[in-house]
Design a protein around this nucleic acid. Structure first.
Lengths: 260, 260
DNA sequence: TATACTGTTTAATATAATAAAACAGTATGT
DNA sequence: ACATACTGTTTTATTATATTAAACAGTATA
């Protein structure tokens, strides 16, 4: 799926075309900024304003960025079209499903695959049910505020600060259980912890008695494009926590070895 | 929204960086091909195999393309991440909604905004209800096979052959009404007609008595990223067809003048 | 009014993109 | 089994082009 290609220590880097690479890293800047001016881009990637200007003319001409009425640049429509195409073609659900089923079978608990579908909600796009009578049973296509779910928090923790800030602006923190995250500050603390731990928990924050663990699926730039989770009754989940975390790690490793 | 920037007759083209532009057009090749080899890319954009090789190393290093186990290239995960980001940030629904409401008010009929959400289904992501008692009334988030809806056909008609072929492979043509499209051949004929007309019809193909007209929203490369439609009872719709088509044209013009 | 920013344009220079050629590997068909 | 025709990869040489600096005009700020 992703080849864990870092920027510097890559032995293939002698073939990288620097101007093209700069153009690609300009697009990646928009993970951290919603709008950027030519001068800001020039500073951020370390080129003169005149070359930054030429980069932006080139990118805008193909619709990869677009200019706002104030002369700033944003991500463009063509990028959205290509992204949807990439999503449709990678067939995330069908490729991940076998591993999700395997994880549900081995862990005995219900497993989910989620994406952030509109900036504030996570959507469960696939699931594999657990083997117990008492198990989590969601409807396919179920949507939920990201901060109420383990997968949502796992995705948010591995997004840029800019995306998180957008989330905080748009979301209302209506508590669903006594354990629900109450405000922006608490969410930011939780996100910091997830970054350290590498996994996210839902300790009865969406529904009493329900505990979930989740880990993110990361692209080559380190951003989460989806997350997988294991969910079940709190008593069982707390006992088997370490086992479940290992299941998540193993499954992600299998998924990453796929070639999308 | 999109600036209708053609490739050649652009007076800004003296600033375009050719190597970056080639890299962007390589990504756009994937609208027409799901997988491409280095040699194929070299032929298609008109460079030597050695430079095409360098382009692909550069693109793969940033996750914009990924290599399959057979050594061919596909669109990469980073492109999906950026596309989702672009989609979330452009806030399609909130930007288009005022125009959709205006169109519903002026036409008196229910209007929809749709995207192709997984390659085979269209999803109605926004609607504005008509003023009549007898009106189309869908649930938000309603999904339907693309070939059964006007918006779905409008989007398919302005996608690459490759996307259409994928659609034909994955879809089952179960007729929903006597007018439903019966097979792949019929759909291809309809698509050709839509390309000529610039709009798509649903003549009681999803539900008896219901007629819809739709037009696509196009990005700078000419691909549909969404579509808008007007829906209502066949008797009214057939009478007011030309008026509704004009409403669609006017609305799209307004949307295109927005800067996403 | 002066300062410090912009985005745009031009021209000069040095860098880096390009293609050609050669190599090794694979698949094809004879 | 052989020959042909493809691959992807690597190196090298040359040319083209990406880059910068400098200058200009416009805007906002103090």
């Amino acid at each position: 799926m992703q080849k864990d290609t870092k920027k510097e220590d890559n032995q293939e880097s002698r073939y990288i075309l620097s101007s093209v690479d700069n153009a690609l890293s300009i697009m990646n800047l928009f993970f951290d900024y919603e709008e950027l001016s030519t001068a800001e881009i020039a500073k951020l990637i370390g080129v003169s304003r005149s070359t930054a200007f030429r980069f932006m003319v080139t990118l805008e001409n193909r619709g990869f960025v677009s200019k706002t009425e104030y002369g700033k640049y944003r991500l463009g429509l063509n990028l959205f079209s290509l992204g949807m195409l990439a999503y449709n073609r990678m067939e995330l659900v069908s490729m991940v499903h076998p591993y999700l089923s395997k994880m549900a079978e081995e862990s005995g608990e219900t497993c989910h695959l989620s994406i952030l579908d509109d900036g504030i909600h996570v959507m469960f796009i696939d699931r594999a049910l657990g083997s117990s009578c008492l198990r989590m049973d969601t409807a396919p296509g179920y949507r939920q505020f990201a901060h109420c779910t383990a997968t949502g928090k796992a995705i948010l923790a591995f997004q840029s600060d800019q995306v998180v800030n957008q989330y905080l602006k748009k979301t209302t923190f209506k508590p669903r259980t006594p354990n629900s995250i109450k405000d922006a500050q608490e969410l930011l603390q939780v996100i910091d912890q997830i970054k350290l731990d590498g996994y996210a928990c839902d300790n009865e924050e969406a529904e009493r008695g329900l505990t979930c663990f989740a880990k993110p699926l990361l692209d080559s730039s380190g951003h989460a494009y989806a997350a997988i989770s294991i969910s079940g009754p709190t008593t069982r989940m707390s006992t088997d926590k370490e086992i479940h975390l290992q299941h998540l790690t193993d499954t992600i490793e299998s998924i990453n070895s796929l070639s999308f």
